[in-house]
């Protein structure tokens, strides 16, 4: 007991010291924020395309996240209604997020009411801090868990390729979550949000602009960039069948160019089906995982970019899942 009391005193006295340090940090942060606000105004607007009336997209590079591309590898966009703006994904760095904000301000001064994250991956959420704290952040009901589990890991892991760009990245979780469906009204512009079963990841959310017919599919749709499996291959194949029922005119994939709907689903469906059938065959023949990861899906190699960066990983994930069938 005595040592407990002693420890508590020690803790309390270090709290006193902590408080003083905290005050100092707050002062520094305030000065820092002022500087940030200034540089925010200075950010070069991200190059965006008006893909349909009121829908704007920046098409990311088909590449891995690096300091050179500032993490700008995912497609990010925004939708403007009569009253407000909704952002769909914020990019792979706060710098990209700030450039997206500048691009929005270049087009409209309506308030940015919502920031929607299509899932938890860094290239889609690392720009969130550029829009915090004013916007309402929205995501899949699983997004808070995914960000809590993976956020600190990603902040460490991406320092190697992104360097100092990571300094200002913060994990900003959603304040509003979608369990199945939700409708947002931006003023004569209705967005239909839908949360999906584990597919590309376990927090996939799609955004359909019902007014224009543009579907922001997040990473449930890949074109040119090889699909990346971080959820469930069986779930993704089922989801592709369900996605076909969405009455969209065009799709903005998470990676790759805008395309017609639902024709855009065919390439990734082909890839995932080949991968699954190769894995099932290798499992049946007793080929161990390490060897299987080197061969499954290889027939798709010429059809995709970044194939060598992701295919063995996809094969590993698919094999481990399908082994339980």
């Amino acid at each position: 007991m005595g040592s407990d009391r002693q420890r508590r005193r020690l803790v309390q006295s270090s709290y006193g010291r902590l408080a003083r340090v905290a005050v100092a940090i707050v002062i520094i942060a305030l000065v820092g924020t002022a500087t940030l606000t200034y540089s925010q105004d200075q950010a070069e607007p991200l190059r965006v395309v008006e893909v349909a009336d009121g829908d704007y997209v920046h098409f990311g590079a088909i590449a891995l996240m690096t300091a050179e591309n500032e993490g700008a590898i995912a497609n990010v966009g925004f939708v403007i209604g009569d009253d407000a703006v909704a952002v769909v994904d914020t990019g792979g760095s706060v710098r990209e997020g700030r450039q997206l904000l500048a691009a929005i301000r270049h087009v409209t001064h309506k308030p940015i009411k919502y920031v929607i994250n299509t899932h938890a991956h860094p290239d889609h959420v690392f720009g969130n801090a550029a829009f915090a704290p004013r916007a309402v952040f929205i995501g899949h009901v699983n997004l808070p868990r995914a960000l809590a589990q993976r956020g600190p890991y990603y902040l460490d892991a991406f320092r190697r390729s992104m360097g100092g760009l990571l300094d200002e990245v913060k994990v900003v979780p959603p304040t509003l979550t979608v369990e199945s469906e939700m409708r947002l009204d931006l003023g004569h512009r209705s967005l239909a949000l839908k949360a999906w079963r584990a597919a590309h990841s376990d927090s996939d959310l799609t955004v359909l602009d019902e007014t224009s017919g543009t579907l922001f599919a997040g990473d449930l749709v890949f074109l040119q960039h090889v699909p990346v499996l971080d959820g469930s291959i069986r779930g993704w194949l089922k989801t592709i069948d369900d996605l076909k029922a969405i009455g969209a005119k065009r799709v903005i994939p998470g990676h790759g160019p805008m395309a017609e709907w639902p024709a855009a689903l065919a390439p990734e469906q082909g890839y995932l089906e080949h991968l699954a059938s190769d894995c099932r065959d290798l499992i049946k023949r007793g080929v161990p995982l390490a060897a299987a990861a080197q061969t499954a899906g290889l027939s798709e190699k010429s059809l995709w970019q970044l194939f060598d960066d992701y295919n063995a990983r996809n094969a590993t994930a698919a094999y481990s899942e399908l082994e339980w069938e």
């Binding site: 868990r145 589990q149 993976r150 890991y153 584990a198 376990d202 971080d230 469930s232 992701y310």
Partner: peptide, 10 residues
């Protein structure tokens, strides 16, 4: 990439 040592399907 976005690979992480945590569960894919939480």
């Amino acid at each position: 990439g976005c690979s992480a040592p945590m569960a894919k399907n939480g």
